[in-house]
Design a protein around this nucleic acid. Structure first.
Length: 464
RNA sequence: GUCCCCAUCGUCUAGAGGCCUAGGACACCUCCCUUUCACGGAGGCGACCGGGGUUCGAAUCCCCGUGGGGACGCCA
């Protein structure tokens, strides 16, 4: 059977890291088995769903390169189909009208909680052979409930967690259509998964409790039950649960912060899944290797340090053209205008092996296009009267030396030798004058890229 | 409260009864490279939640604790 997986977000916010991993795993599983990956937008909560959120999710998936073979399908556009199935269930007696109002149910829940019971619908409107139902109230619009089996248990072999069994006694007759007639989540999922021929449902851990209800629903419809794989959640860097008010960020924020999508993807792939000792791999390799057997059932804590390490790796691998395009944008956002010279490509090549994020890269090369502010501490440490003669001599050399890193290096060396100094004694103040800080790549290469005029100007601008 | 799930270095993980004196990666520490800072290279520190079983043998299987998480909506 052809594998068909789906990612089914509800558009009530951005695509966060947990959702992205769920999507990634579903996507990779489909790829691995040459199947189809379907995107379905679960927007039946009209009050909370927004078109902006739909767009944010689409943007996030696009940035990560998680393309879908079918969809996006929108549940709100499938109403006629849901109504049809609802009617069928009513006709077949697997669903029934319930007139219990919200306040009535609220009171029921409360009393059950007080008795230490699990709050459940007590089946007061559930039709049963020989049972006398109350007369339906005139003015109240009923909800539709699913007639859940009362005995036995639901068992499934979760592809991640192993066999899970839940007694039907623990379940109640869930509402599948609201008083206004709109269907609810569990019902829509079941109809859609069935209609779309989903073979493996790969989703978050928080749906484990919905699974037995969905299996019962599926069976009531005479549908095939798919396989389920429940992924554990991702915790924040601090080990705390990610939530809107704590730590949850859009995947697009990683873009803003200077992470490459392949780094985020590689990191996410390795979070909760493993392939022996492999740490760094492409999506192509991932898709060839991915399986559900090597997913950890326990929750994983996010580790930004490791993401940075991967990001540094992928920055080193990135082509200069790609980095030039990206870094130009970031510099522009910082208000730094990139000029033809110094050559941005050369500057990036000099720095790309030293940084962990693209923002760090942009920030560390800004001084090539904008006079740096001299770091006071560095200046105090390296600027002094005794190097003045050496600097003056160096200036003379630099006026006429052939402008290559090698020749510049010779010039500095000559001055160092002439004044019987150690190399850093000259190189350090030079570095501070030119870059503003005491850390930079090889100073002769920096000078070479900066250009003779700018180098001379920056040295002359400093009062020792 | 009830039900469900989870448990190996600080973190991500390898581990399917003997290959485990528990392996790799990030981080951290030391050294090397060096023109500063990085990068890179070589080392080091560091874990099987506790208790009972089963077995010749358990990180691996079972039970009980403990701890963590999730779910109990006319949300998804």
């Amino acid at each position: 059977m052809t594998v068909r997986t789906r990612f089914a977000p509800s558009p009530t916010g951005f695509l966060h890291i947990g959702g992205a991993r769920t999507a990634l795993f579903s996507w990779a599983f489909a790829k691995r088995h040459h199947g189809s990956f379907i995107l379905r937008v679960e927007d039946t909560d009209v009050a909370r769903s927004t078109p902006e959120a739909v767009q944010a999710i689409l943007d996030g998936m696009h940035w990560l390169g998680l393309s879908y073979d079918e969809g996006p399908f929108y549940q709100m556009q499938r109403m006629p189909r849901y109504k049809e199935v609802l009617q069928k269930m009513l006709d077949e007696g697997t669903a029934y009208y319930c007139y219990a109002g919200k306040e009535e149910l609220e009171a029921l829940r409360e009393s059950q909680m007080q008795q230490g019971l699990k709050p459940r619908y007590d089946g007061r409107w559930r039709p049963e052979a020989g049972k006398l139902l109350p007369a339906p109230p005139q003015d109240a619009a009923p909800v539709i409930r699913f007639k859940n089996p009362q005995d036995g248990e639901v068992v499934w072999d979760d592809l991640v967690k192993g066999q899970i069994r839940i007694a039907n006694k623990e379940l109640d007759d869930l509402i599948i259509a609201r008083a206004d007639g709109t269907p609810t989540y569990n019902f829509c999922v079941v109809v859609d998964d069935n209609d779309m021929g989903i073979t493996q449902v790969i989703r978050g851990d928080d749906h484990v409790n919905n699974t037995p209800r969905q299996i019962n629903l599926l069976q009531a419809l005479g549908a095939t039950v798919p396989q389920y794989a429940h992924l554990s959640m991702i915790l924040g860097d601090d080990g705390q649960k990610l939530s809107k008010r704590h730590g949850a960020v859009s995947v697009m924020q990683y873009d803003e912060e200077g992470y490459l999508p392949e780094a985020v993807l590689n990191y996410l792939a390795r979070l909760g899944w493993s392939h022996g000792d492999d740490e760094i791999f492409s999506m192509k390799q991932f898709c060839a290797w991915f399986d559900l057997d090597h997913i950890t059932p326990s929750a994983a804590q996010f580790n930004t340090e490791k993401l940075k390490w991967l990001n540094a790796h992928y920055i080193k691998l990135a082509s200069d053209e790609r980095l030039v395009a990206d870094i130009s944008k970031r510099l522009a956002q910082m208000g730094v205008a990139v000029t033809a010279l110094p050559d941005l490509s050369g500057v990036i090549a000099l720095y790309k092996e030293r940084v962990h994020t693209l923002n760090e890269l942009a920030e560390s090369i800004a001084y090539f296009y904008k006079k740096p502010e001299i770091d006071a501490i560095a200046a105090e440490k390296h600027f002094n009267q005794e190097i003045k003669p050496a600097m003056e001599r160096l200036l003379q050399h630099l006026e006429r030396v052939e402008w290559t890193a090698e020749e510049i290096h010779h010039a500095v060396s000559e001055v160092v030798a002439a004044f019987a100094l150690k190399f850093p004694k000259v190189a350090m103040p030079l570095r501070v004058m030119l870059t503003g800080t005491a850390q930079s790549p090889s100073i002769d290469q920096v000078m070479c890229l900066l250009g003779r005029d700018e180098v001379l100007a920056r040295i002359k601008a400093v009062q020792l």
